[in-house]
Nucleic acid binder design. Structure first.
Lengths: 117, 117
DNA sequence: AGTCTGTATTGACGTTCGTTGATGCAAGGT
DNA sequence: ACCTTGCATCAACGAACGTCAATACAGACT
């Protein structure tokens, strides 16, 4: 979703009035970003040197229960922003930059790379 | 909020783990973008040639009641994304690009203008 | 003054969201 | 086999959200 086969090429906010289905797709991702806990989780993963973070490092960083953190990570994953893998006892998460970059391009009002000017 | 006095300079998602208060500010704006109706409204305003759109042009574009549209416009305004002015009988809305551009910079994972590398 | 049009606000309703305790599952260590 | 640890899922609750009908407000025109 959101970017299959040249969807990311479609212009940003300011080039056309934005149809229903594309608005719905984008809204899903923005909704996933619309929570401070999820933003901190995403940033915590994105800013990590190796690119991967174990859940066991994220959970104690919040005053929240472990199921709550797990739930937020699931929402971020369903939004296509992160992915994870189990390695032994631990589960590691990393960022999928594709959707993030498309979102950034969508929000940019001043068209930097004007294709058709 | 979100950008008073050199806040926009602070790096994006991937430069540091993102503190509580900044995460809360960003989450408010992303939450405002996390609804398809609001995204369409914002895009409708941003893509307009003159930069201004009358409410009377936006309301009939949706299968929603007039109070609902008014409510969504209010949320977008409270998020600092748009502003409005009454001119005679009609009210006109326009986009405030500042917050949008800061959001785009925040989401960009590939640092284009690496200050400290 | 009165009326009409355009927009915002209020109050209410059903739905979704964020959170938790309890439970389940996977893998490692005895 | 058994227990222990790390993480996910379930069921339930209160809070917030999206929507609408009804109402209020602002301006223009008689």
């Amino acid at each position: 979703m959101l970017g299959q086969d040249g969807d990311g090429c479609c212009g940003g906010l300011a080039v056309a009035p934005l149809g229903d289905e594309r608005a719905a797709e984008l809204a899903k991702v923005f909704k996933a970003l619309g929570d401070p806990v999820r933003l901190r989780l995403l940033s915590m993963i994105a800013s990590r040197e190796g690119g991967e973070v174990c859940v066991c490092e994220m959970t104690p960083a919040f005053d929240l229960s472990q199921p709550t953190i797990s739930h937020h990570l699931k929402l971020l994953r369903q939004a296509g922003l992160i992915d994870c893998e189990r390695r032994g006892t631990w589960v590691y998460y990393w960022v999928l930059p594709g959707v993030l970059d498309r979102l950034a391009a969508f929000l940019t009002t001043s068209q930097t790379a004007g294709a058709v000017a």
